[in-house]
Design a protein around this nucleic acid. Structure first.
Lengths: 185, 185
DNA sequence: CCGCTCATGTAACTGGTTACATGATTTA
DNA sequence: TAAATCATGTAACCAGTTACATGAGCGG
């Protein structure tokens, strides 16, 4: 058989979620994404449902009937093969972009901050700081709540908090350096 | 006229690069992505060339003839309309995902670290730490080189360094907490 | 002149989004 | 029972990737 292509991020993540949350419906998986604090997980139906079927077709997920009330549905479980795929996806042999600098839309934009008049540049940075701080604080709350709960889930949120704090620190440094250079010129 | 759809990340970034690098060919833009330290910018030809034409079609880029030797080519410039579009893309009214937690493939994977036997979990984290540290150090070199040069370019790399350092700190914390909980149980 | 890299593309594919559809279930 | 929301989809679209093609310039 041809070496099956690597899983996408979404596929790996769904596989992991089904593995972590026992037998569950696609919608249960979807809800995780919908309520995720990371806005890049859209959890759109058009992504999840076909994806789950795809994983099932690959033999990584198995399904069992599951009737809630009058309505019939399927609950999925990770197969032995699925676990192997999950572990393979986890690592530790990653393509470059897994450990490399992650994308950051804010950083991308600030690369071109010079396109704005100086007064607006400062305001721009202040606005960004406020937004990022809000997000960070909300994540910190989430982390506190997860504290005693599942360790891995906690560490996941913890990672987000640390990265957001670093971004915040960067924005502050950026603003101060900007004020400095403006005063000097 | 219908409210023109928002620019994609790649479109905004290309627009910014053409704005920053004066009149330049699509290939010059491509080279920036190809030599970028952020691995998520692929700079594939199939993305750049059609994209530049798209921006030109929208009136955000203008082109001028440009002959190197016998070969004819086009160099592009940002139009006044293009500058307006760039500024609009920059902000400061961002969709959620711009200031929110950025994606992080490593964090995504470690969410499911429990799928590995405990001994491998620790090794996994050590491997990740080493890789991230390498990337961070290489970025730090780049930052040092950019030091006196363009301020905004420097701050861009600086942001990457700070985020990578935060990820590193997170991995360390993760590993220590893991060792702790393993010893305790 | 040969082969290598530069520079500019193009065609097919694909994963994910948007927007819609539909029946089941809950709530006012 | 009417309205809202839950749960499960599907079809069209789209941006970006992969893989290929092609000619120009250059180093041996």
């Amino acid at each position: 058989m041809p070496p099956t292509r690597a899983l996408t991020e979404l596929e790996g993540c769904v596989l992991g979620l089904v593995w972590a949350n026992g037998p569950c419906t696609p919608y249960a998986v979807r809800k995780v994404f919908l309520s995720s604090k990371s806005p890049h997980w859209s959890g759109s139906a058009g992504a999840i449902y076909p994806l789950v079927e795809r994983l099932a077709g690959l033999g990584l997920l198995g399904s069992e009937a599951h009737a809630t009330g009058r309505r019939a549905s399927l609950r999925y479980v990770v197969t032995a093969e699925g676990v192997r795929a999950l572990v393979g996806w986890l690592g530790p042999s990653w393509p470059d972009w897994v450990a490399g600098v992650p994308p950051d839309p804010l950083r991308t934009r600030l690369r071109f901050l010079a396109a704005l008049p100086p007064a607006q540049q400062r305001q721009f940075l202040l606005d960004a700081e406020e937004l990022v701080r809000e997000h960070r604080d909300r994540l910190q709350d989430e982390a506190d709540r997860r504290r005693g709960e599942d360790f891995y889930r906690y560490m996941n949120v913890r990672g987000a908090v640390l990265v957001m704090t670093a971004r915040l620190e960067w924005l502050r440094e950026f603003r101060l350096a900007l004020a400095n250079s403006a005063g000097a010129s």
